[in-house]
Design a protein around this nucleic acid. Structure first.
Lengths: 195, 195
DNA sequence: GGTGCCATGTAACGCGTTACATGATTAT
DNA sequence: ATAATCATGTAACGCGTTACATGGCACC
């Protein structure tokens, strides 16, 4: 999503100035989304440029107070009532890295996923620890952690499946597509440190 | 990840010109990552600027042929052998939208997740259909689809959990943090069309 | 009366993405 | 010949992010 929608949501509760929005944003997302204050001001300018927000006054302290506009409200309503799109082009770092490793013949995909699995298992432990020491009343934060755990677990299952399939025959590796290219053999990577 | 790493990976197999890389990229990621050709050229320039790649020759057809440099190889090796980071700040659209809905008191979080769940269930059906009509030899693509399905299922489980918790008492909604703000009541959103 | 830190901003960058420009090759 | 498409690139934009600038207020 974007900071834009976040600020719009907060402004839908009433006009506010930048720093107030920064505080509200932190209140809503907590550590899940560390936000540099500067981003609030730039994003507000862009929202104003797009007519979703307007500068209603400059208060006695010289702070710019913004208010959501009608179109802003409309945009927000549409955004909130529109599900996050899930298509077959939904990329993510892990799978793209694996696809590249498989296609390159240059890196061992099995090694890549082994590394990733270790990291993911550690992450789950970390998440669980964080969850354990969280105040039970902080529902939003708990749900956020739960989501991280569930997705990390799904990733583990997927990594297992990948390893299975890579071990089977027919695990062909895609190679260069056309023949109109220089056929010189690819140099091999020196045995790098697997840090 | 980035196109940068993708191109680096492909160039690690040998020098190539832009269009060749475009073809290779499509061969590696297929429909999972539709790539505008223009991006290849701009990314190559940036890689050259950063010294990860160098222009080795302009062939008889006037095409620029790039080769990976030593530092490029190093960078690639490091990237491939470093797991994708999983921290508590890993955001995603769905959970952020929910956190905002919970914090705003302006939108009904239950409605938001209901919409999302419907969409995710449809997505899973779509994924399954795509998977069914995929050539069994296209391992990379099958794994990609599997990943999408697993994560979508994890999301369904999470959405269920969210709905459970939201229905329970103590499901407090966070509100504006400080008191130094104008206390005028927030205007309410008109009953928007839940498209 | 400095030294910090809080509050409010502006400037600039990096990268993914889109749109546009241009020459070569092929089809009609 | 002309239209279409391929192949190669450049220009510009949007947004998230970082770094820098500045004025007030506290506190020692």
């Amino acid at each position: 999503m974007g900071i834009k929608e976040g600020l719009l949501t907060l402004l839908a509760e009433g006009p506010a100035h930048g720093y107030q929005l920064k505080l509200d944003f932190e209140g809503a997302t907590g550590e899940a989304w560390p936000l540099n204050v500067g981003q609030v001001y730039t994003t507000l300018q862009r929202l104003e440029r797009d007519g979703l927000v307007e500068l209603v006054e400059t208060d006695e302290d010289g702070r710019n107070i913004y208010s959501i506009t009608a179109t802003g409200r409309e945009t927000l309503q549409t955004w909130m009532s529109t599900p996050v799109e899930r298509t077959v082009t939904n990329r993510d770092d892990v799978s793209m890295k694996l696809l590249l490793a498989m296609a390159s013949g240059f890196v061992d995909p099995v090694e890549v996923i082994a590394i990733q699995r270790d990291a993911t298992m550690v992450a789950i432990q970390d998440y669980t620890r964080v969850k354990a020491k969280t105040d039970a009343g902080d529902l939003a934060w708990l749900l956020h952690i739960d989501r991280l755990i569930l997705h990390a677990e799904a990733e583990l299952r997927w990594l297992d499946r990948v390893e299975d399939r890579l071990g089977q025959p027919g695990a062909t590796t895609r190679r260069r597509q056309t023949a109109s290219h220089n056929p010189e053999p690819a140099p091999t990577l020196p045995e790098g440190d697997t840090q």
